[in-house]
Amino acid sequence: MTPRTTKLTTPLKESDLKTLHTGDMILLSGEVYTARDAGHERMVRLIHEGRKPPFDPKGAVIYYVGPTPPHPGMPVGSCGPTTSSRMDAYLDVVLSTGIKATVGKGCRSPEAYDAMRKHGAVYLAAIGGAGALLSGHVTGAEVVAWEDLGTEALRRLTIKDFPVIVAYDLAGNDIFGEGRRKWARR
């Protein structure tokens, strides 16, 4: 039995988000913006200065990833998710711009889940360590800003049927806590 699978295209609309349930598999297409620790530090500094992130945040998706260098002719190398919880401290500010989803791996803090409920955003989990496989779903990549950060630069990735699992939906269902409790042997 495979999980319920739906297709979705960015930018995400509120009506899209309402259809998502924790545990669903989503094949995501469109564009996502990459940022991890150093990129978040810069992005949040810009927002605090009253400026906008260097892309249109409305309905946008942030992907927590630092890819490996591409082979010639390929957009990116290996590109699986990094640990999301390191970006939790920035999430409230990031989502305040209209960004509607983040993609990463692993459980997050209560504060991060609060921020998602406050801003009506969801959290999507990609399979950690599956960077070679996920690379096949990236059809384009360009550096938008902060090239000096190397792998941590802000990139726009064009993706096609990129598989993610809904980890936190608008109703506040958390796949990590619920999944563990369901399968624990007492």
Partner: peptide, 29 residues
């Protein structure tokens, strides 16, 4: 767990993809 099985299958597929494409299996090398 069905979802757990799905994930392990993809992790195995990923190991093959890495060999085939000569890419790092994981981006955190």
């Amino acid at each position: 767990s069905p979802l757990g099985r799905e994930i392990i299958e993809r992790i195995i597929d990923n190991a093959r993809a890495a060999r085939d494409k000569q890419l790092p299996a994981c981006q955190d090398t």
